[in-house]
Nucleic acid binder design. Sequence first.
DNA 1: AGACGTACCTGACCGC
DNA 2: TGCGGTCAGGTACGTC
Length: 277
Amino acid sequence: MPELPEAETVRAQLEPQLVGERILYSWARTARITAPSIDEFSARTQNQTIVAAKRRGKQIYFPLQSGDSLLVHLGMTGRLHVEDDAQFESDALHRHIQGVLRLSNGKRLVFTDPRTFGKLGVTRELDFLKKMGPEPLGDDFDAEKIVQKLAKKNVRIKAAILDQNLVAGLGNIYADEVCFLARIHPETLASQIPIEKLRELVGTMRPTLERAIAARGATLKDGGYQDTFGQFGEFIPQIYGRKGEGCDNCGALIERGVLGAGKTARSYHFCPNCQKK
DNA sequence: AGACGTACCTGACCGC
DNA sequence: TGCGGTCAGGTACGTC
């Protein structure tokens, strides 16, 4: 699923294709995905020039000449493609088109999202980006501040680092990955983890995300994620999705667990030997 | 205010 | 083969 490395890959690929282009026409399928409304989305994006391609955590946004920004969150199954505007696409995914922007360079930006957990919006208000937790790739990333916050949290560590208000950009894949790299069981209460372990955990976030970006993100066995060219990500997680396989570190069989219950349940993967409670 | 529970959605997968 | 049930999970919001 798209997390920070996947969002960054998409952003970087779109930047040279979109910046400086004018949006001739825009269309969105449903108000459930599009904010504030379909009509307003079109009105505020049409005839606007895209001035930049930015990202914050998993959020991708494109400042427009008007001062508004076009916002995209890929959710779980969202994809952004740039294709020739004249081309007819019969790809099965195109049944799930949620939005289209026709551009002045003869291309169009297409947002598809089968499971519709994604978001497509336009807003002038970007304060919510500032309220998110620190950006792991940012120059001012203060790992120690996060360590101190975690030390006070009475929440299981996996849930804690998935919280976008603590640190922005981790999802299920990379949260599992950093727990594995720091040898911490995902269900351990954050407040019960030795401070040095927490430092190890937070310290591994940035290099892990950077390695994933270098591989253009991760595509799981379901093939869900594709970059803007339809290519799969080549980052291979050491732990997520590898239930029953041997741990890279010790060879023990990787197990899968579930955090929470009912509709809230989130799966996690761990090595029972390297990550003891 | 922090912790936790609920809802959204549909392709893929599983068991009978 | 076909069909119905279950799973997956990012995030907003409600509740205690």
